[in-house]
Write a protein that binds this DNA or RNA. Structure first.
Length: 560
RNA sequence: GCCCGUGUAGCUCAGUGGAUUAGAGCGUCUGCCUUCGGAGCAGAAAGUCGUAGGUUCGAAUCCUACCACGGGCACCA
């Protein structure tokens, strides 16, 4: 409907004034109409005419052309055009809302990389956030017709592994892989994470430790390069690495995430080194103090090291390797990388360097960044010393709060966390408050889930077969309002997908639930003379809520 | 120091060029009154949209400067 209107308005401008203009249709306050446009204002400037007069001629034209779908076109204020749909057109739009999602990624291949945990380390609240948001974005693109490959990247080699392995060897009093058997399966992740903290502290506290850790770090690279599963260090490394992956898998299963591919740095590193060395010869990268760097200054960026003076790839080269591998494996139309915004300027340098030798790859790459998770009410997150909030701590806090709030329901508690994470616009830090997130009142996940369950229970009550709401129906005021809101869904979906901003879905679902409650307060459904029509409304409403929650990765229960 | 980001009611956030009274939720206060699941509805109080300039017919939204907070700035990830 919006598309047809846009075309009609553009056509009218062409016909009457012989100009091509970009038409933007917005959703004004309901009192003004269903759609509005400011073309007349734009044209007024362009043509040097009075915008109101332009508006009047456009309105007249549209009234003639769109008599079937438009009941009113008026000029308001300085020259806004307000367009009101007929009940019939509105009904058609509303009924199709939950199934007519603009296919703006049709036939497109998209690689979505997010979550990115490091092996040997614990998953913290930030991983949970990025995973939830990344899933929602991937869901949006998929629903818009795209083929999405969800991939994960993580550090299974690098200094943090050196630190951890050093501490593991110290804890086991030598390179004794057989002693790993004494660590209970359910505490492996915590055990390794404790070693990482010890290793990090040792590295910072004493220079002699630094040499030892650098040495073991280099040996780990050798273990990986040789695919050495036999030496004591090799056995320690591969066993612990597998523990990490098992732990990640269990966590992702718990939150409903799934990645089709995992790129470990040990794989992308050598690819990156190869590429960086090739491009070193071509002058993209250059040597500096024994390291290989990319100088970003000509582009307003800064210089970063890609291969260090020991000849080992840094994160930069590993990311270059990752980009090349994704490109070769998927030939994507678009690659989306979602990380914490601390990486924003770092990533700019990496992508700028790639742009020098693979411009089409760089052009198709979007780095999307989000803020950090701050916990309301005292739970603090600080890295380094190990007093971080783990991802599971957040889930447990939500679950505990949900029990306190009176519903003992794990899926609802998970939905509450997801909703709380997604509802704010991506970019700034978010404050997570477990109590608020599970609240049954206000803008929360459980509120929307409840709204859905309530609508389904109404539908379950009727003995009528099907609804008579269809194109051609005439509507009462309250019905019209609700239907208008339902009909906005495809537009909100398109906006969220185009901008890669899933929070628009949250905002909309909440407004939709409010619109329904307003309707429901005043209008009876079951045993009302208009029951047959209103059932169609409730159905469309419930389906839209369900679809929206699905995009957010949140279950829409029929009962709560 | 340079670069990037953020700054909207007591708190948590929408709104990122349009129309009046800048919107929600929580919290505070007042009604409805327990309904087809009230986990609701209606209303009130609460904002110099960080500050000061500028562009525009029109600015929370764009530009400039400044302030505050966060982040980044070579061999960590």
């Amino acid at each position: 409907m919006k598309e047809e209107l846009t075309k009609a308005v553009a056509g009218a401008c062409k016909e009457l004034f012989d100009v091509d203009v970009q038409i933007e249709l917005t959703r004004p306050d309901e009192q003004f109409g269903d759609y509005a446009t400011n073309v007349a204002l734009q044209l007024g400037k362009k043509l040097g005419k009075n915008p109101r007069e332009i508006g009047e001629s456009l309105a007249e034209k549209l009234r003639q052309q769109l008599a079937d779908s438009v009941s009113q076109v008026s000029v308001a204020g300085p020259g806004f055009l307000n367009i009101k749909l007929t009940d019939s057109a509105l009904a058609e739009q509303g009924l199709a809302a939950s199934v007519s999602r603009p296919q703006i990624y049709k036939d497109k291949v998209v690689v979505a990389e997010y979550s990115d945990p490091s092996a040997f380390k614990v998953l913290h609240a930030g991983h949970l956030y990025t995973s939830v948001v990344g899933d929602a974005i991937a869901n949006l693109i998929e629903a818009a017709g795209g083929t999405v490959h969800r991939v994960n990247f993580g550090g299974d080699v690098g200094l943090h592994v050196g630190k951890t392995m050093w501490a593991i060897v110290r804890e086991l009093a030598g390179e004794h892989p057989e002693k790993l058997g004494g660590i209970p399966a359910d505490s492996r992740a915590d055990w390794m994470s404790a070693r990482y903290v010890e290793g990090t502290n040792a590295y910072e506290d004493d220079e002699s430790n630094q040499a030892a850790i650098a040495h073991i770090n280099k040996r780990v690279y050798q273990v990986v390069a040789d695919d050495d599963h036999d030496s004591p260090l090799g056995q320690l490394y591969w066993t612990c690495r597998q523990w990490s992956y098992d732990y990640f898998d269990a966590f992702y299963a718990r939150i409903g995430s799934h990645f089709e591919k995992y790129y470990p740095e040990s794989i992308t590193g050598p690819v990156g080194v190869k590429v960086v060395r090739e491009q070193l010869a071509k002058g993209v990268y250059e040597e500096s103090d024994g390291a290989i760097v990319f100088k970003g200054e000509p582009y307003g960026l800064h210089t970063r090291v890609f291969i260090n003076s020991q000849g080992l790839p840094t994160y930069e080269a590993k990311d270059v390797g990752l980009s090349m591998m994704k490109w070769e494996e998927y030939h994507f139309d678009r690659s989306i990388i979602i990380t914490d915004n601390a990486q924003a300027q770092y990533m700019e340098v990496v992508i700028k360097s790639i742009e020098q030798f693979a411009p089409e790859l760089a052009r198709g790459t979007t780095h999307l960044t989000h803020g950090r998770v701050k916990l309301a009410g005292g739970m603090k997150m600080s890295s380094r010393k190990g007093n971080i909030v783990r991802a599971v701590d957040v889930l447990e806090a939500a679950y505990a709060a949900s029990k306190k709030a009176g519903f003992d329901n794990q899926p609802a508690a998970l939905g509450a966390v997801k909703y709380a994470f997604i509802r704010s616009r991506l970019g700034s830090d978010i404050v997570y408050d477990p109590e608020e997130s599970v609240s049954l009142e206000g803008n929360s996940g459980p509120y929307i889930q409840y709204a859905h369950a309530r609508a389904r229970s109404i539908l379950a009550k009727t003995s009528l077969q099907g609804s008579t709401l269809k194109q051609g129906s005439t509507l009462e005021v309250g019905e019209r309002s609700l239907l208008r809101k339902i009909g906005e869904y495809p537009e909100v979906f398109e906006k969220a997908t185009t901008e890669l901003m899933p929070h628009h879905i949250c905002t909309y679902l909440y407004e939709l639930a409010q619109a329904f409650n307003r309707f429901y307060e005043k209008n009876r459904v079951i045993d009302d003379p208009r029951e047959a029509v209103r059932l169609g409304l409730v159905q469309a409403y419930a389906d839209t809520l369900k679809d929206g929650l699905g995009l957010l990765g949140i279950h829409a229960p029929d009962k709560m």
